[in-house]
Design a binder for these strands. Sequence first.
RNA 1: GCGCUUGUAGCUCAACUGGAUAGAGCGCAGCCCUGCGGAGGCUGAGGUUGUGGGUUCAAAUCCCACCAAGCGCGCCA
Length: 557
Amino acid sequence: MSEVLLIRQRIIESIQQAAIQAQQSGKLPGIPLPEISVERPQKAEHGDYATSLPLKLARSTGQNPLIIAKNIAAFISCNAEIADVTIAPPGFINFTLSKEWLIKQVNNILLQGNKYGDIDYGHGKYVQIEFVSANPTGPLHVGHGRGAVLGSTLANVLKSAGFKVQKEFYINDAGNQILAFTRSLFARYQQCLDIDVEMPAEGYFGSYMTDLAKEIIENCGDKFIKMPSVEAEAELGQLGLDKMIARIKESLELLGVRFDQWFSERSLYKNGQYDKAISILRQNGYIADKESATWFVSTALGEDKDSVVVRSDGTPTYFATDIAYHYNKFIERKFDRVIDIWGADHQGHVSRMEAVVGALGINPKRLKVIISQLVTLRRGGELVRISKRSGDMITLSEVIEEVGVDACRFFFLCRSADSQMDFDLELAKKESQDNPVYYIQYANARISSILRLAEEKGIDFTDGDISLLTGETELTLIRKMLLLPEIIELIANSLEPHHLTYYSQDLATIFHSFYKQCRVVTDDPDTTRARLKLVASAKLVLSKTLHLMGMTIPDRM
RNA sequence: GCGCUUGUAGCUCAACUGGAUAGAGCGCAGCCCUGCGGAGGCUGAGGUUGUGGGUUCAAAUCCCACCAAGCGCGCCA
């Protein structure tokens, strides 16, 4: 376990013991104690940790919270780790870590290397994150980009937090949209061969379909018009689908996103899992036949409407395969936890899905659906359409090329998933000079530059004496570095990876400030070697943070 | 009409999940290079947290009502 999480635990225990001792001594009424927690105060003058326990006890004991604080704090003694325990109005007990302990952590970080920050929060539990899962009927757009960055970052953080993680892309290769895709492609294919056919009304009119048709003509010629049209559609459709999936993979690759598994919707029908899932629901009494269709009786689980599972024409809805898919995730593949990241247009589906999971006999708490809100793309304030069916769209790949991967990832990441975002291409490019992305990477470049200088001068700092790092500026930097494990824990718990972007900016700011105030390589060899150690550890922490966000860490810019 | 999400500085967003004087970036007004990368540092102005009530020692955060924006609402996915 991380040292910094351990010390937090020890502080909590010492508060608990002190409260019990206060009760035994009669200074605190013997009422049951609430769960004790500590928090990180916002202001440095309030110390490193604080508890509001006295305030929570004020009502039930009828005592003044400040008196309670005083009486509890009297039983907490300082030690090698805790330098100071103080009380503050209206009723806080504040803890300050000792300089010695803080400084010691520099060696600790260097020792852990790129494993620094990793914690054992997940205990090896198996988590699946399913994200993007875009229909393979068109290229990815910015909305998918947001989901991709969210999901991949979350996967990185959860791994770091001690979970076993699987990243999955669900390929919707069954259903009506595939039929429409196939017909559109066949129409474009024929049109490119000067055959006068009409596009289907519900078809995909984007220009990428024509490009796809041309590409297929280049590779396969006109063989599909010589075949019976049913066969031709089937074969051409599959070919087109494969090519679209390949393009989706390429776009994701550009963002640095790789999946462990590409899961086919169709496979659920082939291996009988669809039938199995529905029969479980039927057994549990959640399936009803009415109006010549088959329904999932979600009203029995508190939903306001039932949902069609099999249409009156006998074909299953996408909801039916989603049932089978989640049966597969939890029961066949035995994930302890499943995280689905969906777009805002699927939010009405969330409570229904949770109901299904429960109806399958699975604790619904094991499923967490994250809704990533809409992204509106703008160029200089003007709206850019990203609709797949209409012609004019800008793809994710184009956006990445225009603003760069690192900026892209950072922008998508820095807002919490449930707030909508405007992505202005002009702004993203214009700000690239003055961008937080460059600001953070610049901090790393500066560190690298210092380490290069040290190397050129042949300075070996492996036995540098870190106990010299007693300056306030140095301690501030150490304190910030020590926050990383807590940030990882926070994200593993809240599933909100945007905290990383703020942490990385804070860390960079504090480093830049340190850089200004403390020269590292000087005539004083002892200070030089001590500070080189500090700087080397800062590089580890910064690199780890950027790595978790999936960003590059250039040593020169 | 109902449901989900959002509303915080001029703009874009945070706020450790109920804690102390609500913080960053951009923009704005200034200041700082005879030292490791100025893509930098420092200072300042800027707020009735959409509105009104409620719960609490404590509310941007929880509850209720209203206003505004986005998304969705049984045989599309």
